[in-house]
Design a protein around this nucleic acid. Sequence first.
DNA 1: GTGGTCTAGACCACT
DNA 2: GTGGTCTAGACCACT
Lengths: 125, 125, 125, 125
Amino acid sequence: MLLTVDLQSSIPIYQQIRNQIVAQVAAGLVRPGEKLPTIRALANQLQVNLHTVNKAYQQLAQEGFIDLLGRRGAIIVQPSTKNLQQTKKSFQQAVTEAVAQGVSCSALQQLVIQTYQQLKAGKTV
Amino acid sequence: MLLTVDLQSSIPIYQQIRNQIVAQVAAGLVRPGEKLPTIRALANQLQVNLHTVNKAYQQLAQEGFIDLLGRRGAIIVQPSTKNLQQTKKSFQQAVTEAVAQGVSCSALQQLVIQTYQQLKAGKTV
Amino acid sequence: MLLTVDLQSSIPIYQQIRNQIVAQVAAGLVRPGEKLPTIRALANQLQVNLHTVNKAYQQLAQEGFIDLLGRRGAIIVQPSTKNLQQTKKSFQQAVTEAVAQGVSCSALQQLVIQTYQQLKAGKTV
Amino acid sequence: MLLTVDLQSSIPIYQQIRNQIVAQVAAGLVRPGEKLPTIRALANQLQVNLHTVNKAYQQLAQEGFIDLLGRRGAIIVQPSTKNLQQTKKSFQQAVTEAVAQGVSCSALQQLVIQTYQQLKAGKTV
DNA sequence: GTGGTCTAGACCACT
DNA sequence: GTGGTCTAGACCACT
């Protein structure tokens, strides 16, 4: 798993890690059933604190993206119907926010396509 | 301004108020430059506490949606480029989350169109 | 008086106007006793709403930078001891904020000099 | 953490608390990664309402000074580049305000040094 | 015990 | 009458 963290960003590091793992799933680079690196391994690889990675994993688990297996690591889970509906609601909310800022329908469509293609090309956004 | 709050929802009331005002802007029911109801008026209308409405207004102001004019009320502001870029980033993040949950590109496109039309028809989502 | 407004900025326009007038005073381009353009003239020049300029002038007056002469315009006032002390407090607070963010003493010194020289060269910052 | 509030001051109590915590960070009395007292503990210590302290913490979090960990308290965060640039802009604005009030460049320099030393000596300003 | 949320009631300065 | 601020007291979910 290839992740990078930007220590200069205003986005908290644990959030960056969480977002990039989600992006990797979106890109299909990791699939349901596959294992994530152990907290210790990822912390070591990224040169960040154990707690930082732990916080990212805890959030992903709470969101239903992964299952924590205790000492044996964590695995990506199959998306559940319940999570999917929650995700759709969030997506609709994001559409609403954008429209409120004056973004047009076609601009959103383009943004969807562009983002989708970048993800599938392995570029996390 | 026609808002409703669901006291049973797990979404905090102040957040519901905030979301619905954004949706009203997205629907074009209120436009930049127009005044929002006073905190007390809206609190009275929705039968919630003044502080709950105040919290929603404070958040909207901090997000750049409205301009608090002190005792003279609050007005919807013109979207700024900076906010717009932030909004696009958030939207791309929402696309990523959805794709990670297995939603297809065409499903997202449909969801964009459907949500957009509902908004323009005055249905807050 | 040469002012410019950035409609794309996330800083409210009235705030930009207010800041630039302060910067003009700092640069010595306008001096105590001198008249500011009328609200109507400035609004026309900048192609913004009367109320926007009015808000900037109201704030400047309330801060003690200018005296509103009603229909006869506004003039820059001599700095008062009371305002000066308030300004020093604000400046010390700004130093504190910067130091809290890890900015060194010498970096602040340099920033003072650099900003001062830019102002005196007529470059508003 | 040693804070004091002045109930007679025109500065809101929550703002005083916020400012003093920033000053403590500036003085190096609390460092990134360290925990802040719980809201209830600080409210009790200062003999103010829990909501007043909460408002200060919320503002600090929004400004990027602290990270709210939910029920596990709040910790001081590492300054980010983005926040730093914002802070520098604010500092330059403070220089401009002072120069507009007639403060000389050397007076500002002195004020920087003096404030810096007071902070490092543990005197919040 | 904790933070998050909500209500109820109060006082102030400003218009 | 208004927003800003503050207090007091309450319930909830989470640990």
